[in-house]
Design a protein around this nucleic acid. Structure first.
Lengths: 137, 137
DNA sequence: GTGAATGCAAAAGCTTTGCAACCTA
DNA sequence: TAGGTTGCAAAGCTTTTGCATTCAC
């Protein structure tokens, strides 16, 4: 498995891709597994992990590292980043495009030898649920 | 454990802090354990994990999530970020300060409700070792 | 002296993998 | 039909935890 071309679109992989893309938040493997099980009761967790790997490798999904289980993102647009909730750890998408370019320029100037090719922005803040909770006390 | 004040400075914690701060790269728990064992042969891996947690919690260390084991950073300056090597996965420090402010401003404008309080930048590029290797072919 | 920290070992949590059966191109 | 893919189960790796003992304040 090493690119878009040689990816077999099996029933299981389509179900996994669909589960991530139609998820409101960014699901982890266990959540994807539960969702896929609804339509494919005999699917295994191992298959879900292998499908997620294959889909990330092929560029259909993004993998987000956290302090717990990895989460997956069906939105692979380059100029889209993440905010981690300081209260509950949820991951929310956040669009930032203009300033991204300047960050990369500054990094290239600061450390030209590092051959900076891109940047991922991880914001800290509050997800809507926790913001509401905070505002009430 | 919830702040600087109530952190007991035990021999083990000092050794763990010292190991991370004097490491060239960003060590994981196993590497810290090996280093600490040189001066404290009876230390346990569990203690290293608990010390790392306590030191992160108290603000002496930064924890970096990766696709493998978590890595720790003795440099806690706010305006210092990381570059992950696209070839070998090493994590290198990179100083970016000016553009960071603009990124936060843009994010606050794009999604005011998320109460953005900070940002962590994760650059993609090549560490010095891999850059040299690439340049040779 | 007292509560927190440690060492040890066992367990938990997440992810990967070996293998035989199965399916897709 | 040939090789990749799946289901199942076992193993692997990282991290956490229970408990008796020890230590720092």
């Amino acid at each position: 498995m090493s690119g878009l071309s040689d990816l077999r679109l099996t029933t299981q992989r389509q179900a996994v891709l669909n589960a991530v893309q139609h998820s409101v938040n960014h699901p982890d493997a266990a959540e994807v597994y539960e969702h896929v099980r609804a339509s494919l009761p005999r699917v295994s967790l191992g298959t879900v992990y292998r499908a997620l790997d294959a889909l990330v490798e092929a560029g259909f999904l993004l993998r987000i590292e956290t302090s717990g289980p990895a989460r997956y993102d069906g939105n692979v647009e380059p100029a889209h980043h993440h905010l981690t909730c300081a209260r509950c750890g949820a991951v929310v998408d956040i669009p930032v495009t203009r300033a991204e370019r300047q960050v990369i320029d500054e990094a290239r100037k600061a450390r030209p030898e590092l051959r900076v090719s891109g940047v991922r922005l991880d914001f800290r803040g509050l997800c809507p649920v926790c913001r509401d909770a905070e505002e009430r006390g």
